[in-house]
């Protein structure tokens, strides 16, 4: 593990006169959870969209295993092993687990026929590997809980070759127990050791529970980064608030 799987150097992204990202550095190592934190508008979304090939960087360079790469489309990024699970999860509620799992990448035999049995088995096994045993792969996704859907989307990304898993606020909009379910899933994926996870969240507690490394963004810049050991608890809280002291915030409210 001599080098990070994904390295971002001095990434700049401008939209016309607006600078969304000004010189962001990021190292993502296999087998680690890298928490990406920051307030609304800090540039988190722009950063992950650039990493997923949706946006092209204005300046700066992305490296995969030390080699410079350019992503022109999301397809390029996916081929390089970047799997992004967006908040909406890109699932179809009326379709079955299996049909969602293989949507757009179906296993087919003669005449484009679906290999349904094989697909059922793969979908079931891949979800079991990261901690959820669905009893019926023919179940419609609409009947699943938020946590189960998240797991399905993650298992799908991994199965189709994600080496870097970008999770966009996977715990928001979920109940307490389902949040823990998702965190446990992330932990299981980390334990495989070969997948790097970028975990985007607003939640300080979740990030502390699970992350090995942190990067804090504010107004398009990195205002703090380091491993869990390097950052003390107070630092994390201060950086989450965009560098302000909690006391200052309390003052604002007073």
């Amino acid at each position: 593990m001599a080098q990070p799987y994904l390295r971002v150097e001095k990434l700049v992204k401008r939209f016309g006169p607006f600078t969304a990202l000004s010189g962001v550095d990021l190292d993502v190592w296999p087998g680690e959870v890298h928490a990406l934190l920051g307030d609304n508008g800090a540039g988190k979304s722009t950063l992950i969209k650039t990493l997923s090939g949706v946006h092209q960087p204005t300046e700066g360079q992305i490296y995969i295993e030390g080699k410079p790469v350019t992503f022109r489309t999301p397809r390029d990024a996916a081929a390089a092993g970047i799997g992004t699970v967006y908040q909406d999860l890109a699932l179809n509620p009326l379709m079955s687990v299996t049909r969602n799992f293989f949507m757009g990448r179906e296993l087919k035999g003669m005449f484009g026929m679906l290999k349904m049995d094989e697909m059922d088995k793969v979908a079931h096994d891949e979800m079991l590997k990261i901690g959820i045993d669905i009893s019926d792969p023919g179940q419609a996704v609409g009947t699943m809980s938020g946590g189960q859907r998240q797991t399905l989307a993650i298992a799908r990304a991994i199965h189709f070759g994600a080496k870097v898993l970008i999770l966009d606020e996977p715990t928001s909009a979920l109940g307490q127990k389902q949040q823990m379910e998702v965190l446990r899933t992330i932990k299981t994926v980390r334990e495989r050791g070969d997948i790097a996870i970028i975990f985007i969240t607003h939640n300080e507690i979740h990030s502390k529970l699970i992350a090995d490394r942190f990067t804090f963004l504010s107004l398009g810049e990195v205002i703090g980064a380091g491993t869990k050991e390097e950052l003390a608890g107070d630092d994390i809280r201060r950086l989450m608030a965009g560098g302000a002291e909690i006391e200052d915030l309390a003052q604002m409210l007073a």
Binding site: D88, L89, A90, L91, N92, P93, L94, M95, R99, F102, M103, G104, E106, K108, F111, G112, M113, L114, M116
Partner: peptide
């Protein structure tokens, strides 16, 4: 019900952005 194109038809009608 049995082919890849069928899966695409369902996916297109359900949530086309996800598809």
């Amino acid at each position: 019900s049995r082919t890849q194109i069928g899966n695409w038809i369902f996916a297109t009608g359900d949530n086309k952005e996800a598809a």
